[in-house]
């Protein structure tokens, strides 16, 4: 590898975190689009939310956003927890009705 690239890796800055979060976001979107299991899709959603969180924290560390970023990060964690709780309850109920958590099989409504 080129020495300049290694140097860039050794000195983490804003761009490193943004790239990391972009990768996480893409993985989340991929999970949502490709997985058929509801739980896997919900994990993809968590990845998306956490990638946004990394953005917030990185911006508040490296730019003049200061504490606002941390604040938003905390709120996002709370919202994500609430959403996951509701989602799991709904999925459990769907499992009771359909005996499956495969998204392709949970589709009786059509037209």
């Amino acid at each position: 590898m080129e020495p300049s690239f290694l140097q860039w890796l050794a000195d983490p800055g804003l761009s490193h975190f943004l790239i990391l979060s972009a990768i996480l976001f893409s993985l989340g979107i991929m999970a949502v689009l490709s997985k058929r299991n509801v739980i896997m899709v919900l994990m993809g959603v968590e990845l998306i939310l956490n990638s946004a969180n990394i953005n917030f924290i990185a911006f508040s560390r490296f730019t003049d956003l200061s504490l606002d970023g941390h604040m938003i990060g905390l709120f996002v964690i709370i919202v994500a927890a609430a959403e996951a709780a509701v989602a799991l309850a709904i999925v459990l109920n769907a499992y009771k009705r359909f005996k499956t958590i495969n998204l392709d099989d949970i589709s009786m409504l059509k037209g």
Binding site: V32, V38, V41, V45, E83, I90, N93, S107
Partner: peptide, 9 residues
Amino acid sequence: AEASTKYII
């Protein structure tokens, strides 16, 4: 049940 699953996703 199905509607709420789809909606939340």
